[in-house]
Amino acid sequence: MKTLSLIFLAFILPLSATAQDWETPRMPWGDPDLQGSWNSSTLTGLERFDGIEELVVSEEEARRLELIDAGLQGEIDDFPAGDLPVGEVVGGYNSFWFERGNSLLRVRGEPRTSIIIEPENGRIPYTITGWSKYWLTMLKTQKRNNPEEQLLGDRCVVGFGSTGGPPMLPVLYNNNYQFVQTPGQVKILVEMNHAIRTIRLDGERLPEQIRPWLGDSIGHWEGDTLVVETTQFHPQQSLRGAIKHQLYVGLNSKVTERFTRIGEQEIVYEFTVEDDNIYRRPWRGELTFRPSDGQIYEYACHEGNYGLSGMLAGEREQGVGGLRWIYGLITNMPEEVSHKQLSNSRFDN
């Protein structure tokens, strides 16, 4: 593998040289210009693919994995003939709805097998406390007792998983972000659930009793890099569940993001998540944002949310004390976030 990495360096060096030649465009008041619509879709997951150790793989290996993934597309669309079974998991989306790209994540040209770059194993380093909180919260979503316990995406409160973040992570679809800058702030319109992140530059934190969805973000420029620190997360935004990733971010976690535009077509997005209570150590990830065509369209979720009433009503229909969730736990837990053709183990051969 070391030889491969060396071969790789040969590829990367000319790339970074080009990046250095590129001059960051500026807003009229001098701030670097990050404006526009950007997309972060990728086949690569937050955590490392099972059976693959390296963070960076060769282009050849990347193409092999991309082909395996493309081959699974048919299976995703392969619904059984006839009526769907009653009282069992009936599957979810077919691939028509997906917009997760066709390729592995490439950061500064390197094909990546996870968004997480630290720790080395590409996994979230939960403490026992963090791990228990994650599972207890996830279990509650499966019991369907109360709307407040369901996933945020199912509730249409904010998008699925950590799409609005921070950290802003790609999900199955709608991975579009529009950046708009004014003197003193950067606004990021997150397509999923039309959530706006307002990053106040050199601003002061909100009073501590205010804990907004997507946290309170304060930014500053370090050279041409936008550095954003976010704290004061909403108490119900800890569990970030989606088919593409699942994570638990603590109430008092701190997320630091760095946005650097390294070319016309590329923003490198780096993030660090810290919380002594939830993680054994800070963990870090990297992503690439690429231009997205056109403007962001409306994502109205709550207004047509038949799903949440369907999930709760279905559970009530099965009777008080229905044990479907235990069945779900054994067979397909947790059902909203599992999708075997998209799981991290799909390349494990």
């Binding site: 109360n146 709307p147 509730r155 907004p212 969805w213 119900q236 709760l312 559970e315 009530r316």
Partner: peptide, 19 residues
């Protein structure tokens, strides 16, 4: 400020579907 009222109407819209 943020006024994400989706969470504020959950009792109104889904309260009857609680366990």
């Amino acid at each position: 400020m943020q006024f994400n009222c989706v969470e504020f109407v959950e009792e109104l819209m889904y309260g009857h579907l609680r366990k």
